[in-house]
Design a protein around this nucleic acid. Sequence first.
DNA 1: GTTGAGCGTT
Length: 93
Amino acid sequence: MKSIFVGNLPWSATNEELEQKFSEFGEVKSARIINDKMTGKSKGFGFVDMDDDAAQKAIAALSGAKWGDRELTCNEARPKEDRPRKDSGRDRY
DNA sequence: GTTGAGCGTT
């Protein structure tokens, strides 16, 4: 399974729509759109978890695809380990 | 109620 970074999403985009659009290219394990204004600012992007080959196909297919009037940006998401949100490595120090 | 370059929450 690989994580796909989907950007340039419309403000009206939903997780279900993203999942549906990606599910037609492969099995979507999970799809979430980060669009939270309360906790911070508008994200406007989402993340889709799919199989490796499915993710590649989805990226190649939806990369540059148009969501209504906007062009989608699909790329492989960065490892979450690169962005420690919680105490990663509590046994240290 | 708004905005638009980017990499995430339960």
